[in-house]
């Protein structure tokens, strides 16, 4: 078990956004969290990252995973779109959490960054300005930043929002490759087609947990049939 929820509920200022969460993610799993807008997906992400405390129940981590060891790929904010920073500066900032109080990056931090830029095939973007990259390139830079932060668990929040179909497909292939390399992946997405294509497990939310299990079971379940069939598509 890498991370798990036991009867967890999360919400804002007394309102519960999502409740009844019971699921376990094991090492090497690829979990896709699906559900409509407002179903509690983003709130769950905040809970898993410990940015938000559960209102009830608990979030457990195992396999020696510290809460700060989750690589996170957040949705982009408007402020980032025109941020003057080189790709290298952005990726390097992923090492900050591991630095603790130490003020400057070590040579090792820089070599980890170079390694991951190579892994994702974006060495050529190293000195380019982040705001001048295409959407797909920006996502790869943010992915590299998440990977230099940790190699244990990767949490992605709507990573393909705003990408064109080719860039989306490339990005999913990249994540699948990393997953085959042993990285545990949790991805939040609208994109049910890609979810069932790549994920090993599905968690379906609508204010509460509608389904959790393997992708094969999901496709045979009532919830899965309805959702994948397009009845809920948005």
């Amino acid at each position: 078990m890498v991370i798990a929820c036991q009867n967890a509920a999360f919400g804002y200022e007394g309102n519960t956004a999502v409740s009844g969460l019971n699921f376990t993610v094991n090492s090497g799993d690829y979990l896709c969290v699906v559900g409509e807008n407002g179903s509690g997906k983003s709130t769950l992400i905040k809970g898993l990252l410990r940015l938000k405390r559960p209102q009830s129940g608990s979030v457990l981590t195992g396999d020696g995973l510290l809460p700060a060891e989750i690589g996170y790929l957040p949705q982009q904010t408007a402020a980032q779109k025109d941020f003057p920073a080189s790709a290298h500066e952005v990726v390097l900032s992923g090492r900050m959490g591991a630095r603790g109080i130490a003020p400057f990056y070590s040579r090792r931090d820089k070599s980890v960054v170079d390694e991951n830029l190579r892994l994702l095939g974006i060495e050529s973007l190293r000195n380019r300005c982040y705001r001048e990259l295409s959407g797909g390139q920006q996502q790869r830079v943010l992915l590299a930043r998440a990977l230099v932060a940790t190699k244990k668990l990767l949490l992605l929040d709507e990573p393909t929002a705003g990408l064109d179909p080719t860039a989306t497909a490339d990005f999913y292939e990249l994540i699948a490759k990393l997953n085959r390399g042993g990285l545990t992946v949790i991805i939040v997405s609208h994109d049910i087609t890609s979810a069932v294509k790549y994920a090993s497990h599905i968690l379906h939310l609508r204010k509460k947990q509608l389904f959790f299990g393997t992708t094969a079971d999901y496709l045979n379940s009532e919830t899965g049939k309805l959702f994948v069939g397009g009845a809920y598509s948005d």
């Binding site: 940015l51 957040p74 952005v90």
Partner: peptide
Amino acid sequence: TFDENFAKATGV
């Protein structure tokens, strides 16, 4: 400055 949520999530 670049990404407060990410920084917070990774323990900064």
